[in-house]
């Protein structure tokens, strides 16, 4: 039997990009998220510019293995309560979970690629700095 979680106050400002705040017990949680962050000097946006075909989005991430060895576990709940007075969270993002209560399996996968694009002028500036 699982323990009872008691939280008096939970305050979360932002929950975004395939994230979950779960209050109560759950069985399976499976989250998946892909992000392509393009930062550039010029203000220019085209959603079809980069297809999500980079290796980081397709490569297999080896998950930590679940040990299938049979463990004879005896758990004694001397006090079947997890008490937390207050939780203050500013942000939950990119396939993350805030879970109050018991769960069975949690699987989450997050893939993030950053691209930075600068203008040529800046390169010249950098080159001149290097020559100094």
């Amino acid at each position: 039997m699982s323990r009872l979680s008691v939280v008096h106050l939970l305050k979360a400002n932002a929950v975004s990009f395939s994230s979950v705040v779960q209050v109560g017990d759950s069985q399976h949680i499976r989250l998946s998220g892909r992000a392509l962050a393009v930062q550039r000097q010029f203000e220019y946006v085209d959603s079809n510019e980069f297809p999500l075909a980079f290796p980081i989005f397709t490569k297999l991430i080896p998950l930590p293995p679940v040990d299938h060895e049979h463990v004879c576990r005896y758990t004694l709940h001397d006090c079947p309560l997890i008490a937390v007075h207050s939780i203050r969270i500013i942000g939950v993002s990119s396939t993350s979970v805030v879970h109050i209560g018991s769960t069975k399996n949690v699987e989450a996968e997050s893939r993030v690629k950053h691209i930075r694009q600068l203008t040529e002028r800046r390169e010249r500036h950098a080159r001149s700095r290097r020559s100094d």
Partner: peptide, 11 residues
């Protein structure tokens, strides 16, 4: 912050 496949579990 809780980000990039992370978990905060009270339970």
């Amino acid at each position: 912050g809780v980000a990039s496949a992370s978990l905060v579990l009270i339970g």
